[in-house]
Structures are given as structure tokens and as C-alpha cells.
Design a binder for these strands. Structure first.
Length: 592
RNA sequence: GGUCCCGUAGCUCAGUGGAUAGAGCAACUGCCUUCUAAGCAGUAGGCCAUUGGUUCGAGUCCAAUCGGGAUCACCA
């Protein structure tokens, strides 16, 4: 039981004993005592002054006395207004620290028996990955790691949106102007190669649509009159009909894209255990829609299109099958959900998808509910905010995006520049140096993205590079490297069953208190599916350690017991930093 | 128009109904003969969008208003 829980129970007991009133221990508020008051934990007793029918000071004094008498680790207490500040003795901190230092499983909760499938990445196969996908990947990866640390069985899966008009557009532009060029022949990365033709399609389309646009027609309407659009549309239809040549071209271009994606995933350390393809699920989705029609949960329009009516849930009527018999996005997602449920039989299906699709997931869930699917309830849309540029929304169609590969290259370069500037490459061989640039550059980027609550929309200014100082990944990594250096030099055992410390320094106490928060942070992060909780915590640990490091000597004290204890304290701090950063997908360097 | 999200320091963001609202960046001032200065300490910077309500207590909950955004496609 944590100290907070102990205090809650004991406070409830105190109220029962003193005022003969039963209260729920969980309703007792226990806070960290703010820095400018004396104490470590604070019990808020405002809610009990009415019960006590005494003023806050008297009530606080009575409850404080009761707590002190019944919990030996409480050394002293003081009452300010309705707050009872508790001072905990050395014994408590030392005991808690020793427990933590000697627990090799700290930070890994026992198996919960809960199985979760987490979908993330979800790229279209007509263009390379951009900053939006990076946010998706980082968030998804981190949430999966957090859930695993909480004992859940997590299966990460990817979904490829590999069919539809957008892919046909890249295909059309390639047919018209590539002259048989390939990524291999041009030396381009496959996804960039295909993306080039996607952007080219739009250039050609606008050119061809110019006459209609001049007459005042909307861009989207005008595009439908163009030759290149006609080709793209023909490809889409022929694809559904199974035309071998079109399928061949589609397979070839997709394979280029997959090869390109693979390289980017490797750069970022992103993995998944299974990929789903919309091209393999849309027919199942269509079947489900037709079944729903047969069961009268859906309805048919005179033109043959199939719809679901969600007006009773305050949403609209949504199309599931077009009048030409082809499936739409939502239908495909129905198929994907069904397939995935059958594959894993999970307790929860989490979808990491942008907030622009909030409505879509409401529709998906309700539609599956109407079909009576048992997994409808387990669907959870974990959405994240869009990444904006200073000039506004990113637009792939116009090539106005922060490209993932470009950004990675920049981060590695920045890491290299910083490291060289600080003269840290001395004694490092080129391989080591490159590894370090990667750890720092990718770490800086991941931290930069993950420290912000994922649901917030963010602005990314490519002109202002990602920082390496202050509240950043490298700052935290630096604390780890410093501790690693100490551990290399100390050369004695420091994890002991018992430590001999006369009086803990306040900075030591602060650090222990910080370290003890880890498991609660882990739980909160899992409950809220929010990696930023972990990021902010890791920063807090690093900051607290740095302060101690600046003001105290860790291993050069006259008293050898002090050295051993402080080295152990530092080592545990490093281990927790490493665990927390691991959850964020961030690696740590032994030196930097 | 319907539904939903967001407004906290110049900027980027923390802030589970609890005390005098915190970090980082940017600005200014100190600190390397000592375990890594990618660090530490300090100064300055706030009608927490506005107004009402609930509460012993509201940046946090509720309502309205103002401002910004998303979405409501036979696109994905």
C-alpha cells in the first residue's frame, strides 16, 4: 500500500474515531506539501470541519495528533488553515528507497489479463510519411509501451489505406509521364517516388481544369472534367473489377511505397506485429453492410445505395455502399474491425487516428452496434491534434508538408552539430558518434512531440529547430549520461539491503520522493492514455537529480556510507529515467 | 446551422476541486582548480478569454457570451 493510501485510510479512521462519522477513505485528499510549507504530505481536512463542528485549526490539530500517534513514520505535523502538513522521518524515506532500489521489477506491473489491440500509423500508400504520421507513430508507440508496463497484453497493428482514388491518381500520373521510371533507376526512396507522381497529378489536373476554373467552376468539380481524372477513375473501377494490368501496376507502385516506409520505420524504431490492408477488408465490410440490410438495420435508396440511419443518435444518415456497388471508407473499417476482432478477440480495440476523424469513429461504433457486434463497445478512438505549420494546415496534395525523412535527417544533423560544438566527440570512434547523434536527434524529436498532450493541436515551425536545452529529450538524456559516468567510476557495489545514513539531506529526500511517484505516473498515463504524463515526469526526475548533483557531491564525500547511498540514489534515478524514456521510445546514451 | 474540441507569462506548454497558478524558450545577473556547464542558482514577466452559477474552496465542474479550430462527401 502506498503512503497516500495509508494516510487516506488512517484519516478516515481518525474521523470515525474522533467524530463518529464514516467517510470513504478514497474521498480523502492527500497532496504533496507545497515547497514553501514544512512537510512532505498534506491532508486536506476542510471537508471534516463541519462534521467536527470545530474550527479548521482545532480539527486539523485533532486529526494530525491522531495520525501521528497511529503512524510512527510521522515525525511531526503542523496545521495551516485546513491543511495538516505531515513531516515524515528519515526512516520512512530510507526504507522506501531501499525497497525501490532492491526491486528489479519496479515499474513493471503484474499481468492484468487484459488484451488490447492498438492500431496506429495508418498511412495512405500514395505518398510519403509526414509530421502528422510522426505524431501518430510516437503517440501510438508510447501508449502501447505504457499499457504493457501496466501489465496489459498489447498487440500493435498497422492499417494500410492501399486502395481508392488517391492511389489511382499517383498511378495515372506515373502512366502519363514517368516513361517507365522506377525508384531504383532514379535513386529515389520508393514512397517519395510515388508521392512525386501524386503531387504531379494535381499539377496536371489543375492545368487541364483551367478552362473550367476560369469559367468559375469549383476546383473539385472542374477536376472531374479532366483527362487525367478520367484515367484515375478508370483505374479505380478496373481495380475493383480485377483487371490484371491495373492490379499489376498497383502492386508494383505499392511495393515501392512499402519499401520506403520500412526504411522510415527503422529510422524511428517503429514496429508493429501485423498489418491490415483495406484492399483485403473492403469486401468483408460490404458483406456486413448487406447482412445489415437483410436484417433491416440498414436501408436501401432507390438508386441502390445502402445507408445507415443514425439520426436517433443525433448523427446523420451515412452511406455504406455506393450506388455503383463499391464500398466507402467506413465500410472498409467495418471489415477491418471484424477481422481484427476475430484475429485477437481483444478486450479493447484502440485506434490512434487524428481528431479530424472523431465523427467517423462515432459512426463506426454506432453502426457496428446496430449490427449487434460484441466488439462495438470495445472500440476507442484515441485521437491526436493536427500539426499545423506557420502558414496553416499541411496539404499533401500541394506538397506543403514537413516530410518525415527530411525532418529525421535534420534532427541527426542538428545533434551532430551540437555535439561537435560542445567538443563531446573526443575519444569517440565514428560508429559511436553516429549512434549518439541518432539517440540524441531522434530522442529530441520524440520528446518534443510527446511532451505535449496528444489531443492538443500543435504548431510546428520548421525555421525554429527542435531544442536541445531545457525541457527536452537531451536534457533528460544528459542526466542519465552523467550518472552513467559516476557509476563507471565508482566501481563498488551500491545496491545494498540497507543504507547507513544519519540525516537525509532535503535534496536527497526530494529525489526519493520524486522516484517514488513513478508507479502512480505509470497508472495515470495508462488510465488517460497520455504519454505526456510520462514525459513531464521524466523531466522532473532529471531536474531534481541535476539540482542535487550541482549542490552535493555524489561520490567524493569523506563518509564512505554517504558515497554508497548517493551513488545508489543516482543509479535508481538513472534507471527510472531509462524506464520512463523507454516508454516514450527514447533511448539513453552512456555518455554525451 | 447541428455536433465536438481549444482560449493559462512575449513564445511553447504543465497544472487529477485545495494553500501565494508552475516549467522551458527568449531577455538580464551570477556559478567550471572539485563526480560531464547539453548543467545549476537568481531577476523580470499573469484581470488563468468574459460574465454568472455550484462549492467551505474554481484555472479545474455547470451555463451563457466572445475568439480560434475540427467535422457533418456516393474522399480516405
Amino acid at each position: 500500500m502506498s503512503i497516500e493510501q495509508t494516510l487516506q485510510q488512517l484519516t478516515a479512521q481518525a474521523v470515525q474515531h474522533l467524530y463518529k462519522t464514516e467517510i470513504d477513505p478514497k474521498s480523502v485528499t492527500i497532496n504533496e506539501t507545497p515547497k514553501n510549507f514544512t512537510g512532505s504530505f498534506t491532508v486536506v481536512i476542510f471537508p471534516y470541519v463541519k462534521i467536527a463542528r470545530k474550527n479548521p485549526l482545532q480539527t486539523g490539530t485533532e486529526i494530525g495528533s491522531y495520525l501521528k500517534e497511529n503512524l510512527p513514520v510521522i515525525e511531526d505535523f503542523n496545521v495551516v488553515q485546513g491543511f495538516v502538513n505531515l513531516v515524515l522521518g528519515n526512516d520512512f524515506w530510507l526504507r522506501e528507497f531501499t525497497r525501490l532500489a532492491n526491486n528489479p521489477h519496479f515499474g513493471q506491473l503484474p499481468a492484468s489479463g487484459k488484451k488490447i489491440v492498438l492500431e496506429y500509423i495508418g498511412p495512405n500508400t500514395n505518398k510519403p510519411l509526414h509530421l502528422g504520421h510522426i505524431r501518430n507513430m510516437f503517440v501510438g508507440h508510447a501508449v502501447a509501451a505504457i499499457l504493457q508496463a501496466n501489465g496489459h497484453e498489447v498487440h500493435k497493428v498497422n492499417i494500410y489505406n492501399d486502395k481508392g482514388i488517391n492511389i489511382s491518381k499517383s498511378m495515372a500520373a506515373w502512366t502519363l509521364s514517368a516513361n517507365g521510371a522506377t525508384p531504383h533507376g532514379t535513386g529515389m526512396k520508393g514512397d517519395h517516388f510515388v508521392g512525386y507522381y501524386y503531387v504531379l497529378y494535381n499539377k496536371i489536373a489543375i492545368q487541364q481544369a483551367a478552362p473550367w476554373i476560369e469559367q468559375g467552376m469549383e476546383r473539385i468539380e472542374a477536376e472531374k472534367n479532366t483527362e487525367i481524372y478520367a484515367l484515375a477513375q478508370r483505374y479505380t473501377q478496373q481495380w475493383e473489377q480485377g483487371n490484371p494490368e491495373v492490379l499489376q501496376l498497383w502492386r508494383t507502385m505499392n511495393s515501392w511505397v512499402y519499401q520506403g516506409f520500412k526504411e522510415t520505420f527503422e529510422q524511428l524504431g517503429i514496429t508493429y506485429e501485423k498489418a491490415y490492408y483495406e484492399s483485403e477488408c473492403y469486401e468483408l465490410g460490404k458483406e456486413m453492410a448487406l447482412n445489415g440490410l437483410a436484417q433491416n438495420v440498414f436501408f436501401k435508396q432507390p438508386d441502390g445505395s445502402v445507408w445507415v440511419d443514425l439520426t436517433d443518435s443525433n448523427l446523420d444518415q451515412k452511406i455504406l455502399i455506393r450506388s455503383d456497388g463499391t464500398s466507402v471508407y467506413i465500410t472498409q473499417d467495418m471489415g477491418v474491425a471484424e477481422l481484427r476482432y476475430n484475429d485477437y478477440k481483444p478486450h479493447q480495440m484502440i485506434y490512434v487516428v487524428g481528431d479530424e476523424q472523431i465523427y467517423h469513429f462515432k459512426v463506426l461504433k454506432l453502426t457496428l452496434e446496430k449490427l449487434g457486434k460484441p466488439y462495438a463497445d470495445t472500440i476507442f478512438h484515441l485521437y491526436y491534434g493536427m500539426v499545423d505549420l506557420p502558414e496553416g494546415k499541411m496539404k499533401s496534395r500541394e506538397g506543403k508538408v514537413v516530410d518525415a525523412d527530411d525532418l529525421i535527417a535534420e534532427m541527426l544533423q542538428t545533434a551532430e552539430d551540437h555535439t561537435k560544438e560542445l567538443g563531446k566527440t573526443e575519444g569517440m570512434n565514428p560508429d559511436e558518434a553516429r549512434r549518439l547523434y541518432r539517440i540524441l536527434g531522434i530522442g529530441a524529436l520524440k520528446y518534443f512531440i510527446l511532451k505535449v498532450n496528444a489531443q492538443k493541436r500543435v504548431l510546428f515551425n520548421p525555421q525554429e529547430s527542435v531544442d536541445f536545452q531545457g525541457n527536452t529529450g537531451p536534457f533528460i538524456q544528459y542526466s542519465f549520461a552523467r550518472i552513467s559516468s559516476i557509476l563507471r567510476k565508482f566501481g563498488q557495489d551500491y545496491i545494498l539491503p540497507q543504507y547507513q545514513v544519519e540525516n537525509l539531506h532535503p535534496l536527497e529526500k526530494d529525489l526519493i520522493a520524486e522516484l517514488l511517484k513513478y508507479e502512480q505516473v505509470l497508472k495515470t498515463a495508462a488510465d488517460t492514455l497520455d504519454p505526456s504524463v510520462v514525459a513531464n515526469y521524466a523531466f522532473g526526475v532529471a531536474k531534481t537529480f541535476n539540482k542535487l548533483y550541482a549542490e552535493l557531491s555524489v561520490m567524493n564525500n569523506p563518509n564512505p556510507h554517504t558515497n554508497t547511498f548517493r551513488v545508489a540514489l543516482s543509479a535508481v534515478a538513472a534507471s527510472i529515467i531509462k524506464k520512463a524514456l523507454y516508454l516514450l521510445g527514447i533511448d539513453v546514451p552512456q555518455r554525451m
